[in-house]
């Protein structure tokens, strides 16, 4: 009798959250999956389309492959940001005077509104009056200004740098909390054995940070969604489709070209790819999703 009472308690503890996710995440996903097998626009009844949308996506649509490639590059940049954040976390994770001031400064950019960050960086990359071109020219690194957001080569890296600038602080904080959960006696033992600094880092720090790194990877994947505002304001897909991520392409196909059925197929494809990547990251981190610190 007691276990049945416990089950009902667990159920009603989980129910409200699950309800929100079912209504605002899972039902829409199901709606998208169903829609991806149909032809539909807001005023016409849905007609069965079979695999036409997917077939068009895979064979006919080179922008899909470009958007997928850009999304993978974007997701590939997240580990770089995590490594940077780990460096800063190590620097800050000491009894340095002013360590908390540095922590706050690095974290200050995260609470900002992505639309505001996009406006600031949109101007900083400006060819004529932008700060970055001015600094590079003063340092003599370049002589002619580079139109960062208008060049096919520089547009996506510029978006990635702006995104890294904003999320660096959050990664640092998550890694810092992981660092400080490592029991100090492990380090004493290693120091006693005479292990050099880098050995301590690779044999103790990194393995113990696995849960934090996995949480950062999941957050990194979420960033590819919040980058929508960044791209929407800064380049709106960039020169040609140079900064088109899957998320912006889905929005454009759905609302600009009013092809909700095709956008649904793209959504399902993106969901499947990200699920695969999460599973791979989960495996790489030594699979135990539950132990997220």
């Amino acid at each position: 009798m007691r276990s049945r009472r416990r089950a009902t308690v667990i159920a009603c503890f989980l129910a409200p959250s699950l309800l929100i996710f079912i209504v605002y995440r899972i039902l829409p996903l199901v709606w998208n999956v169903v829609l991806s097998f149909e032809y539909w626009s807001p005023l016409h009844p849905a007609t069965w389309a079979g695999l036409d949308n997917y077939q068009e996506m895979l064979q006919d649509d080179d922008v899909f492959w470009l958007a997928l490639w850009n999304t993978l590059i974007f997701l590939g940049s997240q580990p770089v940001a995590i490594a940077l954040a780990l460096g800063i976390a190590l620097l800050v994770n000491s009894d340095l005077k002013g360590a908390s001031v540095y922590r706050t400064i690095v974290f200050l950019s995260y609470p900002l509104m992505t639309v505001a960050v996009a406006i600031i960086w949109h101007w900083m990359y400006n060819e004529r009056g932008g700060l970055i071109n001015y600094a590079l020219r003063q340092l003599g690194i370049i002589h002619q200004p580079i139109a960062f957001l208008d060049s096919f080569a520089w547009a996506l890296p510029s978006i990635i740098i702006a995104n890294t600038w904003q999320v660096l602080g959050f990664f640092m904080i998550v890694l810092l909390s992981g660092l400080q959960n490592i029991p100090p006696h492990l380090y004493e033992a290693a120091r006693v054995d005479g292990a050099p600094a880098w050995a301590r880092f690779f044999r103790i720090t990194l393995p113990m940070l696995r849960p934090s790194v996995f949480l950062c990877l999941v957050i990194g994947m979420l960033n590819s969604f919040s980058a929508f505002d960044l791209i929407y304001v800064m380049t709106n897909g960039g020169p040609g489709h140079a900064t088109e991520l899957l998320i912006t392409y889905i929005y454009k196909q759905g609302f600009v070209s009013t092809r909700f059925d095709y956008a649904a197929a793209l959504t399902v494809a993106q969901f499947a790819i990200l699920l695969l990547l999460t599973w791979i990251a989960h495996r790489a981190v030594g699979g135990n999703a539950g132990a997220i610190e």
Binding site: N126, D150, P239
Partner: peptide, 18 residues
Amino acid sequence: NKISWTGRWVEPLGAFAS
């Protein structure tokens, strides 16, 4: 000017206004 083909509103008009 290259911005003709890549700019949207603020960049091209800003360039002419300069």
